[in-house]
Amino acid sequence: MNIFRMLGDLSHLISIFILLHKMQTSKSCSGVSFKSQVLYLVVYVFRYLDLFTNPFMSYYNTLMKIVFIASSAYTIYLMSTVFKPTHDPAIDTFKIEYLLGGSLVMALLFPPKWTFMEISWAFSIWLESVAILPQLFMVQRTGEAETITTHYIFALGAYRALYIPNWIWRYMFDKKAKLETIAVVAGLAQTLLYSDFFYIYWTKVMKGKKFQLP
């Protein structure tokens, strides 16, 4: 465990907290892409299958995996029941079939090993790298976003971005660790997808202005 990994995981937890807090206090999920949330649940379910198979890693590891699956399922539950009237499917129109299909193809083309577990792990990594697209697309369609929603997107993006210095750290100091090429490539791609958002977030939201596309 190094500082970047810790901050990354913390950032992920914070993003979940921000999203649930936004929905509970405003009694609304407007501006939140249901499709992105569904993709994240798929990501966690497929990646954390190792909860049942793998040798035990640590209490921290198990707890975090359960928290990510559970909070993701809870978010979808809230969005599809209590706050359903506040969700506007007309602006959440990104075609996620392409993201699911593309991730599956990538996982089948370059599996770390030819086993179901390894392919599902790779699938989840590729899918996570693009799961934010419906959300970013929605922001782009409306041309603006509530400040709280942008904090959520930022915290979620920072999580994967912070994994990059974590991998550099592991590469240099953690001699036992074998870096996962797929995770690194997908992680870089994921961070790249956020770069436009990060830029506007820094130049506008951090200066107290509303998130508005130019």
Binding site: N54, R170, K176, A177
Partner: peptide
């Protein structure tokens, strides 16, 4: 080198 990174990282 061990292969556990993919199960350790979240």
């Amino acid at each position: 080198k061990d292969d556990l990174v993919k199960h350790d990282e979240l």
